[in-house]
Amino acid sequence: MNETVPGTSDRPGTVASGTSHQPVSSREVRRRFERHQKRRSTLIALTSTLVVVGLLVALIPQTPGWYKVKRSFFDGDVFSETFPRLLEAFVKDVQIFLWCAPCILVWGMVLAVCRSVRTPALFPLRLFAAAYTDVFRGVPVILTILLIGFGVPGLGMDRPWNSPYLWGSVALVLTYSSYVAEVFRAGIESVHESQRAGARSLGLSSGQTLRFVVIPQAVRRVVPPLMNDLVSLQKDVALVSLIGPIEILRQAGIDKSKFANFTPYLGAALIFLALTIPETRFVDHLMARERRRTSGTTIR
């Protein structure tokens, strides 16, 4: 569907013939009306966009502070000088992301499975998983990072056990695994009971049913919300800078102070976008491919 304009349709001539007095001319009238409507809505969309953009371009430079903002956020020289350093620092963000993400997915899945266990004997496990997700979903990431990042190294352990990279990552894993666990759990619960009946009727145990039938379907279903969380993680890695590591956000802060200019922040933002936008598109692509592979027809 490219057109979402109400009242228009790509199928002209759907007049109920029983009620029309002059079928032919009525169809022509409708077709003309619909064409007119479509042309009109395109025109309106185009005009309003032009007006808004035009106003922004015309009005923003009129503001009293524009000259200063332009100088401190859009400084080309500062940009080209700091950008390579930012890019270098960003490698650290990617590294932290790359070792956190698998841990989060695995740990999140373990928690989700714990919460889905139905055996009464394993109730304590379920309780633990529930309490865990409640706590870590309820505390802002930044607080968890500060508490763990400053708290645990305070125990005075030797290297590498006092590394801010380690404890920053641990904080991210703790927090994000609670998000991811909830996503997985929703996926597990969305798999219809009849799938379990089908599997159990073949003699598969409850564990085998979970492993071969339920979880594979659950994971496929939750890939989009999961990617949401991973893209958020990619961004929240920057918060680890609060406890020491010089990654991109910290580097941008250092350069900001050095040049007394905010342009490095803009550079950092662009670098993040350069990674997160393709990430999202790539997943969309994977999902579409999976849909094409397993189903006969695609709705919409």
Binding site: S194, Q195, A197, G198, A199, S201, V213, P216, Q217, R220, T294
Partner: peptide, 11 residues
């Protein structure tokens, strides 16, 4: 057992 709605594994 065979079910009314097949209950095949779609994946």
């Amino acid at each position: 057992m065979v079910f009314q709605n097949f209950n095949l594994f779609p994946h």
